[in-house]
Amino acid sequence: MSAASAPAASLRPALPGDTPILAAIAAAAIFELTGEDYDHDQQEAWASTAGDEETLAERLADSLTLVATRDSEPVGFIALADNKRIDFLYVHPEVAGEGIGALLCDAIEKLAAARGAKSLSVDASDTGLGFFQKRGYVPKQRNTVPRGGVWLGNTTMEKSLVAEGTIH
């Protein structure tokens, strides 16, 4: 489906009953979109963490979580933790490249700024690094994270939400 013919996506707050579908979206994104950057063992370890529905539900409940839907079906989600860090951003592979991630990021950046955040950080996967760089996030630090007996690389990035020249 091309972005031009795709139905418009809408955003809504996450609901407690969304956890299974959001875990499935995360797993699909990990397995289908990260193969160029992570090997199978890394994908398995990452997906087992993201797919732990009980832990995912707790983290989403402690965050401002938005769900992108198309035809009322969830196709992606983003979670903002402590009004300063993007904790999750996953888009279903079937809609990857259609602007869903940008729609989610735009909304969460606006909400964080409206709540007084001066900047946002994210621990971006190697797959997501270019996406965040295009949005103005600047790499700050390279990380290696243990997951299920394997190591995953990611990069802590930060974006200022305050326009240059603005008086603080």
Rank of each mutant, 00 (worst) to 15 (best):
A124E: 05
D123G: 04
L66S: 07
Y38V: 05
Y90V: 00
D39R: 02
T155Q: 04
D41F: 06
G148P: 02
A45K: 04
S10D: 10
I86E: 00
D71I: 03
A6D: 10
A81H: 10
K118I: 00
A57V: 05
T34P: 02
Q43Y: 00
L152M: 10
P16A: 06
E54C: 02
G153Y: 06
S2D: 13
L120F: 08
K134L: 07
E53A: 06
T65E: 09
F77Q: 09
S63F: 03
L120V: 05
P74Y: 10
F31Q: 08
S121N: 09
T55Q: 13
E158N: 11
V122D: 00
A124P: 03
A23F: 04
P16N: 05
L120H: 07
L111R: 14
T49P: 02
Y90H: 08
L129C: 03
T69F: 04
L66M: 12
A3L: 15
A50F: 09
L111W: 07
S63Y: 01
T69V: 15
E54T: 13
A24V: 02
E44T: 12
E53L: 04
L111A: 13
A4E: 14
H40F: 07
V138I: 15
P7K: 10
A8E: 15
A27K: 10
T155D: 09
L33I: 02
E158H: 04
T127K: 04
A124W: 07
G165P: 12
K110Q: 15
G148W: 03
E164W: 12
H40Q: 11
S72W: 03
F132L: 00
G17V: 09
L33C: 13
D18S: 11
G149I: 14
G101T: 04
W46T: 04
T69C: 15
A117L: 06
D41H: 08
E54P: 00
V138Y: 01
Y137N: 00
K84P: 01
T65D: 05
I100L: 02
Q42P: 00
D39P: 02
L111N: 06
L161Q: 09
E54Y: 05
I78L: 15
H40L: 14
E98M: 15
L56D: 03
A14S: 11
A6K: 09
D52W: 01
F131V: 01
G116P: 05
N154S: 13
L104K: 06
E94C: 07
A8S: 14
I86R: 08
V95Y: 01
R85P: 00
P139Q: 09
I78Q: 01
A113S: 14
E98S: 14
L66R: 07
V162Y: 11
Q42D: 01
G97M: 06
A26Q: 03
A8Y: 04
A26C: 08
L89I: 15
F88R: 11
R142W: 07
A114C: 06
G149D: 08
D62L: 12
A8L: 10
G76E: 02
A24M: 06
P139D: 11
G51L: 09
L15N: 05
H168A: 13
A14W: 04
I25K: 02
K110N: 12
S48I: 08
S160Y: 12
A26I: 03
G149A: 07
K84S: 15
P74Q: 10
A81E: 14
C105V: 14
H92A: 13
L111M: 12
Y90F: 15
